[in-house]
Amino acid sequence: MSRIEGLVAEIVDVFGEKTSFISAVYFIKRRFYLFGGALGLIMGLPLRDFFFFLLAGGLTSLAVYASAEHYLFKIDHIFFSSSGRSKREIFGKYYANEIGRGLSLRMTEPENLVGSEGRAIEETRSLFQQRLAVELDREFKRSDWRYFVAACLYCQK
Rank of each mutant, 00 (worst) to 15 (best):
S126P: 01
H77F: 12
L45I: 14
T108S: 15
L153M: 05
A56H: 04
E17K: 09
R30W: 06
F80V: 08
E139K: 14
E135Y: 09
D76Q: 07
L39Y: 10
E89C: 01
K74L: 13
H70C: 08
E123A: 10
N112G: 00
Q129G: 01
Y26R: 06
T108W: 09
L105C: 05
S82T: 00
I90S: 00
S126H: 08
C152H: 04
D137P: 01
I121P: 02
Y95G: 03
L103N: 07
F148R: 01
R106F: 15
E117P: 00
F52K: 09
R85G: 00
S116L: 12
G84R: 00
E5C: 02
L132T: 02
F53M: 15
E139H: 13
M107A: 09
S2P: 12
R106N: 11
E98F: 15
F15A: 05
K18P: 02
V64Q: 04
I90F: 00
E123V: 11
S81C: 12
G92K: 09
I121M: 10
I75V: 15
F128W: 05
A120D: 09
G115Q: 12
A38Q: 02
F50W: 14
I4N: 12
A68P: 12
D76S: 02
L105F: 14
L7Y: 10
G44E: 11
K157D: 07
F91G: 03
F148W: 11
G37Q: 09
Q156K: 12
F35K: 03
G100K: 15
R119P: 00
Y95Q: 08
V8K: 04
E69N: 15
E17H: 05
S104W: 08
F27D: 03
L55F: 14
L39T: 07
L54T: 09
V149R: 02
I22E: 03
A9C: 02
L132E: 08
F53G: 05
A151G: 02
A68S: 15
R30N: 11
S82N: 00
M1D: 06
Y94L: 11
E135P: 02
L39N: 01
H70G: 09
G57R: 02
E17N: 07
